[in-house]
Simulated assay, not measured.
Amino acid sequence: MHVLILGGTSEARALAERLHGTEDGTDGGTVRVTSSLAGRVAAPRLPAGEVRIGGFGGVDGLVEWVRAHAVDAVIDATHPFAERISFNAARAAATAHVPLLALRRPGWVPGAGDDWHPVGSLAEAARALDELGDRVFLTTGRMGLAAFADCPQWFLVRSVDAPEPPMPARTEVLLDRGPFTLDGERELLRSHRIDVLVTKDSGAAATAPKLQAAREAGIPVIVVRRPPVPEGVETAASVEEAAVWVRGLGPRP
């Protein structure tokens, strides 16, 4: 069985590790795993199994690749905000007649003491800043900075790789990769005098400590809601659920 994992997340790497070389549950064979990475990070953490880097060229390119490489199933384990590839995966899987699963970690849930301000987009987040703070910790990734380019606030931008313009005029860039510690996030908020946090609802445990640090400091948090999974696509909330789904697939006709 050949499984294509659209990856780039910690869940995708864990799933590749779980599936690679295991029995496929159908005929005593093993699972062949190919992980596809978008190539937006200069030095990605490579998963187990085969790896391809770069885009497919849209829906048609993905259909062609799935057929040419005899893919039996596709698992969309991309970031919850990778809306375009998720849409392309849904259309391509339907066209190629292969099963598709979306692996989505659960989103964050506000707790007692949180001052959350949910918004539907980065543009809405930028507009909300005027009433909430002047020193912004922006953790939405380097690809969406253009939405904040005209904001007058001071920004601390954290990303794995250096961002490129357009970006806010008053910006300090912090190159770092999670997981992050609670003590580290407390010190970062304190030392940079942060008074508002902007984040996406990625749901990742590795980046959740910033939310607790903001709660403790009484800092408002603008949370960008994640887009929905494409209609009709089955979902799993954990690596184990996704592995069970793969084991339950029958042989392709």
Results as ranks from 00 to 15, higher is better:
residue 33 V to L: 07
residue 245 W to S: 03
residue 72 D to H: 01
residue 250 G to C: 04
residue 129 L to G: 02
residue 8 G to I: 05
residue 175 L to V: 08
residue 177 R to Y: 06
residue 253 P to L: 10
residue 167 M to L: 12
residue 176 D to S: 15
residue 192 H to A: 15
residue 202 S to M: 09
residue 206 A to C: 09
residue 194 I to P: 02
residue 137 F to M: 15
residue 111 G to W: 09
residue 55 G to Q: 08
residue 57 G to E: 05
residue 48 A to Q: 07
residue 177 R to C: 12
residue 38 A to W: 11
residue 66 V to P: 00
residue 126 A to S: 11
residue 220 P to W: 12
residue 76 D to F: 06
residue 46 L to Y: 14
residue 185 E to H: 02
residue 121 S to H: 03
residue 48 A to T: 01
residue 25 G to Q: 01
residue 94 A to K: 06
residue 3 V to N: 00
residue 149 A to C: 10
residue 164 E to R: 08
residue 95 T to C: 11
residue 123 A to P: 03
residue 215 R to Y: 06
residue 209 P to C: 14
residue 83 E to L: 15
residue 89 A to D: 03
residue 218 G to Q: 07
residue 38 A to M: 13
residue 22 T to C: 10
residue 158 R to Y: 06
residue 117 H to S: 09
residue 148 F to I: 06
residue 204 A to Q: 09
residue 28 G to A: 07
residue 139 T to P: 00
residue 216 E to G: 04
residue 16 A to F: 06
residue 144 G to W: 07
residue 33 V to Y: 01
residue 60 D to W: 14
residue 84 R to F: 10
residue 171 T to D: 08
residue 52 R to Y: 08
residue 19 L to H: 00
residue 184 G to V: 05
residue 50 E to F: 11
residue 115 D to Y: 12
residue 158 R to C: 10
residue 60 D to Q: 15
residue 26 T to S: 14
residue 78 T to V: 09
residue 243 A to K: 01
residue 111 G to I: 14
residue 109 V to Y: 12
residue 21 G to Y: 00
residue 203 G to C: 08
residue 131 E to P: 07
residue 185 E to V: 02
residue 238 S to I: 08
residue 126 A to H: 01
residue 144 G to I: 09
residue 43 A to H: 15
residue 237 A to D: 13
residue 172 E to F: 09
residue 1 M to Y: 00
residue 20 H to L: 10
